[in-house]
Amino acid sequence: MKPAVIVFPASNCDRDIAVALEQATGKPPAMVWHGDTTLPETDFIVLPGGFSYGDYLRSGAMAAKSPIMRDVIEKAKAGTPVLGVCNGFQILCEAGLLPGALLRNAELNFVCRTVTLKVENSQSMFTSGFEKGQYVDFPVAHHDGNYFADDETLNRLEGDGRVAFRYLDNPNGSARDIAGILNDAGNVLGLMPHPERMISPLLGGLDGTAFFKGLAGAAA
C-alpha cells in the first residue's frame, strides 16, 4: 500500500495518521500539500482531521475546493480508496464524494472523549479488520459531527449497507446514530471518530491498530 496524506492549512491529525499508517504498512506515507495539483503515485488517499481554514464558512467547505481536491475527486471516482477522518469526513461531504453534511453538534458542545462504535459493515476494505456487530472504541473530538441527510438518503445508506459505524451512545445528535458512511462504490469512507488515536495501549487501546492493519491487509 502506498498511502498519501493530504495536508491542509490547520490539519492537525496528519502526523497522527502518518504514524498509524507507518505502523500498519512499515513505511511512512507521502505527505501532500493541499496547494499541489497532482497526487504522487498512490493507491490510498487520506484526508486527515483538523480544522482546515479555521472551519470558516462551513467545516471542510474551503478545503473541498483546494487545488489537490480535483485530483482526489478524479481518483476517488476511478476507484482509488479514500479515507476521511473527522474534518476529512466533512471535506468528503463538501466535495460531494459522500452524501449529506455534518452539522453543529446538537448540544452545541465540543465533544472530546472516547466513544464506543458498533461495526455495521465488515465487508468494506476499511472495516475488514473487524467482525460485523463488533464494538470498538475510538476517540471523537469535534464540534460539527452531527450527521445530517434527508430521509431518502438515510434509508438508502442503511438499505445498501453503507453505514460502516454507528455510535452506541450518540454524542452529537447524528441522524440514526451514524458515525461513518461509505460511498456507493465502497471505496470512500468518512467517519468522525479517530482510529489513528487508538493505536497504542498508552493511548487507551489497539482498536485503531486493528483498523489500519485490516486496511493494509485488504489493500495488499
Binding site: L57, A61, K65, C93, P99, A101, A149
Partner: peptide, 9 residues
Amino acid sequence: RKLLANPVM
C-alpha cells in the same frame, strides 16, 4: 452553488 451555500442543508 460552488462555495457559499451547501444545498444539502
